[in-house]
Computed example of a mutant assay.
Amino acid sequence: MALLALCLPAAAFAQQQCETLDPSVTRLLQAMSSNAQQVSYSGVVTLQRGGDMQIMELSHSVENGQSTEQLSRLTGQDALVERSGHPTECMHPGHQLLRSADLFDGSFCGLASVYRFRVQPGDRIAGRKSLRLRVEPRDMYRFGHVLELDEDTALILKSSTLSADQSVLEQFQFASLDLMPGKSPEAQIAHEASHPHPHETEHLRQGIAWDLAWLPDGFMATDSAPTASQRKSYTDGLASFSVFLEPLGAAIKPGEGVARQGSTVAYTRGVLLQRRPVLVTVLGEIPTNTARMLADSVRLR
């Protein structure tokens, strides 16, 4: 309930902003959100973070209402990631914000309250025509994005994450793309996703009860994690982050640690909360100052 209350001011502001949201942006967001799960495709993609460039092969197939994804690295050390048996109608909080009909009468107010959108002619990516969607943050707590969307399917052909000075932090792009035939379901039925935290044992869940006293507008919890869970995750529909709280046996020296790779930051700090030493870690696609403010807002319940 506390998290819901934190999100309500953004919702109220969003309803004022929705009247200025261009209908072309709404249609593009709707297509991007729904087609991403319904279209089968494969291709070669590049991921650039600073001076690091990785080339990978990506495939996404849909059959009988289930999606399967496979990602394999073609450069550097071999790595293969596969996800299978995921219902295409499964709706996560991020999808809810993109497809926010249940929240704000079919408009995209949840995102419009914290981002500005502009549609422009796009470049030719992987041999396909695209539309460019510029996503500009309304505050300093999140990054901007430039998305090149396929004109026919609204799949993201290229995605660039921008810092406040407009420098590119991270860029994903299809070098080649093959669309595979697939049958879209005749009806869409939304089911709330309720997945357990991966690799989180009951021992890890039995921490101390805590919460955040502050969240940037527009962010909501991605799941119903217990109050004593050592990890809680949040999203605004485009960006996401997790906050970890680890009880310590003894206090550590004051200070903070910051590591960044592309758009992802890892921020750590040892603090005393009600005389209890804990280690707070914030990991996500957010600016460093946002991560610092989130760590400052951790409170024991």
Score class of each variant (00 low, 15 high):
S24A: 15
P121S: 02
S24G: 10
E57I: 01
L238Q: 10
E200G: 07
P216L: 01
Q261W: 05
F219C: 03
G255S: 05
L47Y: 10
E192H: 10
V114Y: 05
L3G: 11
A187N: 09
L155Q: 01
M140V: 09
Y115A: 11
S130Y: 01
M56S: 13
R27K: 13
A228P: 05
D123P: 03
G65A: 02
F219P: 08
Y234H: 00
L212F: 01
H199W: 12
S107E: 05
Q230R: 13
S34N: 07
T153C: 03
S24V: 09
I252D: 13
S61L: 11
T227I: 14
S233G: 08
W210A: 01
T281S: 15
P196S: 09
L98K: 12
R299D: 11
S130M: 07
A225K: 03
P185M: 06
T288Q: 08
S42Y: 07
A14K: 00
R292V: 09
R73A: 14
L3I: 12
E202D: 11
Q17V: 09
G207L: 07
M140K: 15
A251W: 06
M53W: 09
D105E: 11
Q15S: 12
G94D: 10
Q38T: 07
L272M: 14
F174W: 05
I156Y: 03
K183L: 11
R299S: 15
E19S: 14
Y115V: 02
G43A: 04
R99T: 14
M91E: 11
R142G: 03
H86R: 15
L3A: 08
S40M: 01
E82S: 12
V243Q: 05
S130T: 15
S159K: 15
E256S: 12
T290G: 02
E63F: 10
V168G: 04
V119I: 08
H60N: 04
I252N: 09
N64K: 15
D139F: 03
N35H: 08
D217V: 07
L215M: 08
R269S: 07
Y267C: 04
F244N: 04
S167H: 13
R269N: 03
V119L: 14
F143S: 08
L29I: 06
R299Y: 06
E170V: 03
E202K: 08
S163F: 01
R49Y: 03
A193P: 00
V39C: 06
T268Q: 13
E285M: 02
E200A: 14
C7F: 14
K232H: 12
Q66M: 13
L179F: 08
